[in-house]
Amino acid sequence: MTTTGATKKVLVLFSGGQDSTTCLALALDRYDEVETIGFDYKQRHAVELGQREILRQALTRDFPAWRGRLGFDHLVRIEALAEMSQSAMTHDIEITLNEQGLPNTFVPGRNLLFLTFAAALAYRRGLTYIVAGMCETDYSGYPDCRDDAIKAMQIALNLGMEARFVMETPLMRLDKAATWRLAETLGGQKLVELIVEATHTCYLGDRRVRHDWGYGCGACPACELRAKGWREFKASPSA
């Protein structure tokens, strides 16, 4: 992310999960004015939406350097996304692989819609930069998390809105262990502890059990990725 020159204003796609919280911390560290946007699409793990304000308050309360930078939060409801999909992310069905070899937690068009709504809001709010936590290094294989897909969306949205949005995906080349390390670099152990305690990643929305890496069922793909990254992070020399 480049921050030289005029005041930098950014919109962060913020779900309340580990990745988007790390992206929000990075934006608060590097940008002057930061707004957030979240989406309610009837996801099974809608508990993540309740964590968003807890995290926003903690990031400004406990990290003095970031105070004054966090602006408005926006919540967009797109329930039609769940109505059109047959995904384990939006319906109470078993998590399996589909015919294409993708986890059936994949919600077709989800990230494409997220970016479109974010760009529409950024256009109205006068925000140039849009930060999102998509990653193709350590992920579940979702095609709309790939760098090519994000770059294509940037081109399409700029053409369609006659704008100059810049889509930043700072986690694109990081695995989960590196994402934990980035959080530690940005906010030290305090930020790592906040992410463990307050973020939500589990696809089933399960916050009954507190693991060393956070809350979750411990068995869904999201929990497995997060736990694996945590173990690798703690085993690394810098941890």
Results as ranks from 00 to 15, higher is better:
1 M>Q: 06
2 T>W: 11
2 T>N: 15
6 A>E: 13
8 K>Y: 02
8 K>T: 13
10 V>Y: 01
10 V>L: 02
13 L>C: 14
15 S>N: 09
16 G>D: 09
20 S>L: 04
22 T>G: 02
24 L>G: 11
25 A>K: 03
25 A>N: 07
27 A>Q: 09
27 A>F: 03
28 L>E: 09
31 Y>D: 11
33 E>G: 06
34 V>S: 12
36 T>I: 07
36 T>Y: 05
36 T>K: 14
38 G>I: 01
39 F>M: 13
40 D>L: 07
41 Y>C: 06
42 K>F: 02
43 Q>C: 05
44 R>N: 13
46 A>S: 12
49 L>A: 06
50 G>L: 04
52 R>M: 08
53 E>K: 15
54 I>F: 04
57 Q>L: 13
58 A>K: 14
60 T>N: 09
61 R>A: 15
61 R>Q: 10
63 F>E: 08
64 P>D: 14
65 A>W: 07
67 R>Y: 08
67 R>M: 11
69 R>G: 11
69 R>V: 02
70 L>S: 14
73 D>S: 15
75 L>Q: 14
79 E>Y: 07
83 E>N: 10
83 E>I: 07
84 M>L: 13
85 S>Q: 00
88 A>V: 10
88 A>P: 12
89 M>Q: 07
89 M>S: 04
92 D>M: 04
95 I>L: 00
98 N>G: 02
100 Q>E: 03
102 L>K: 03
104 N>L: 01
106 F>Q: 00
108 P>Y: 01
110 R>C: 01
110 R>G: 03
112 L>G: 08
114 F>G: 07
114 F>T: 03
118 A>F: 03
118 A>S: 12
121 L>H: 10
122 A>I: 12
122 A>W: 08
123 Y>S: 07
124 R>F: 03
124 R>N: 03
125 R>A: 13
125 R>M: 09
132 A>H: 05
136 E>F: 01
141 G>I: 04
141 G>V: 02
141 G>D: 07
142 Y>Q: 06
144 D>E: 14
144 D>Y: 00
145 C>E: 11
146 R>L: 00
149 A>C: 05
150 I>A: 11
155 I>D: 04
155 I>Q: 11
156 A>H: 01
160 G>A: 06
161 M>T: 02
164 R>T: 13
165 F>L: 12
168 E>H: 15
168 E>F: 05
169 T>F: 00
170 P>N: 04
170 P>E: 08
175 D>A: 07
176 K>F: 08
177 A>Q: 12
178 A>M: 11
178 A>I: 01
179 T>A: 03
180 W>G: 15
184 E>N: 15
188 G>E: 05
188 G>C: 02
190 K>C: 00
191 L>V: 07
191 L>T: 05
195 I>R: 11
197 E>N: 13
197 E>M: 08
199 T>M: 06
203 Y>F: 09
203 Y>N: 06
203 Y>P: 02
208 R>F: 01
210 R>F: 02
216 G>I: 02
216 G>C: 10
218 G>R: 06
221 P>E: 04
223 C>W: 00
223 C>T: 02
223 C>H: 03
225 L>P: 00
227 A>L: 04
227 A>G: 01
229 G>I: 10
229 G>T: 05
230 W>P: 03
231 R>Y: 15
232 E>T: 14
232 E>I: 14
233 F>E: 00
234 K>E: 15
234 K>I: 08
238 S>W: 13
